[in-house]
Design a protein around this nucleic acid. Structure first.
Lengths: 246, 246
DNA sequence: CGGCTCATTGACTCAGCTCAATATCGGTGG
DNA sequence: CCACCGATATTGAGCTGAGTCAATGAGCCG
């Protein structure tokens, strides 16, 4: 799988890590130890940091770029379990649950990562319990998010789920343009489908319906929200069993 | 909400906690501090330890009994997010993400809990990073489980999801009887439905179909798996888009 | 230009939801 | 002990959201 050790000096990594909220307050020399034990890499878009089932020897910290984390079932059906952006650690589950990677991580854009051997990182956490608490914070939030999505997939219709996914993505990765909010990273219809637990056809149909209504503008791997409020309304609207009609 | 401070002596709690894998290796006197800062309670079945949205001042450790953790959406639809058994901590997300409880916890049977103030527990973790690592382990496993369920709900049919839920429950809470494996705690059809993201009607229909096939025997809040292998087969069987027929 | 990936759209099907009615269990009070 | 009640469960009928199958279209790269 792609990725080369890069020649760029350490100073840049050091600065990135020092600025990282996870490592706030950690003495510089302890950080240096982490960095020296680890490996810095760059990745082109579309490559896999790791595959579901790979044995996990360490942790990735995504310094730059975007990665999607995918879970696959026995028959090859996929669900996007997480969209990770700059600063996020990847491979936490494998590291702490002490098992092979439970999902695959694929770069969506050119990325830079720092890889840290698991044993080193665990030792580091024992020395820096405050950082452990921050990771607990992070995992707790991810768990919360997963529960929320579980509820949504169990209870909401696709239309509403898709609206929510778009609104959330726009919030996290939206770029303001003259026309509206444009999603900064290019997602295919299929990836969108995997994000909301449906099929690309259904996504395509819904998006085009919304385009006809003037709510969005579509392109190849490109979506602009022209009337975000409409989508928000759709996303939040109350819906008991048997909706209130649209 | 029910629950009274119980009069039973501390010695029993101490023993329970000392035997708890989470606290292995912790000096007795540190444990005592936790216990003294905390509160021991018993709960009848059907009561709520906490409700979604309540502000969270601490952590529950479930010493005995079973609790279901429920997430509710704006329209009142519910999903069971977790079934907790003896030994499991509850309220971790609220504690670490520093937010109100993101879900409600309802006792399914008479329960005993130890409640520990959040600040005390956080301080305790700073003193005992090894315990923090174990909690990381626990959260990592829960996250993994949540991701697995997310994939299942996104990709599998109800029939298969229900089969999986039953098989898993039987594994965790099954009691061997002459007739087969009986689920130890009484779940209504509706609760089962909330566990696999469907409606009670669908659960009822499927279960009765299986009963006719001799795979299960049903009662009011009671299920006996008479031919677990049949359910396992159904649960694991490959299923591409458009199944292979039953 | 040819070939690729990505996207759209139509036609058909059906799993599972909704709506509605009835049945059964278990407990409670007369 | 029986009558009654609420909670739980079963079952039917009908509808529809969304999946499947299939074909075509459109953008992009070598």
């Amino acid at each position: 799988m792609g990725g080369r050790r890069s020649g760029i000096g350490e100073s840049q990594i050091v600065e990135t890590l020092r600025a990282h909220p996870l490592f706030r307050g950690v003495p510089l020399e302890d950080l240096m130890e982490l960095i020296r034990a680890g490996t810095w890499r760059t990745w082109p878009a579309g490559h896999f940091l790791f595959l579901e089932g790979d044995s996990a020897e360490g942790l990735y910290v995504l310094l730059e770029g975007y990665v999607k984390v995918i879970q696959t079932d026995a028959a090859g059906q996929e669900a996007v379990v997480q969209m990770a952006g700059p600063g996020e650690p990847l491979g936490l589950i494998a590291l702490f649950a002490d098992q092979p990677y439970p999902a695959s991580a694929q770069t969506m854009a050119p990325c830079r990562t720092l890889w840290i051997p698991g044993a080193v990182f665990r030792e580091f956490l024992l020395q820096h319990p405050a950082v452990a608490l921050r990771i607990l914070h992070l995992l707790a939030e991810r768990l919360h998010e997963a529960h929320r999505r579980l509820l949504e997939v169990s209870v909401l219709r696709v239309e509403r789920r898709l609206a929510r996914v778009l609104v959330r993505l726009a919030g996290r990765l939206g770029r303001r343009t003259a026309e509206g909010i444009e999603l900064a990273l290019p997602l295919s219809r299929e990836e969108l489908a995997e994000l909301c637990g449906t099929r690309l056809h259904t996504v395509s149909r819904l998006l085009n319906r919304w385009q006809r209504a003037g709510w969005v503008r579509l392109g190849r791997r490109r979506i602009v929200l022209r009337q975000p409020h409409a989508l928000v309304a759709l996303a939040e609207e109350l819906e008991g069993p048997r909706g209130l009609g649209s």
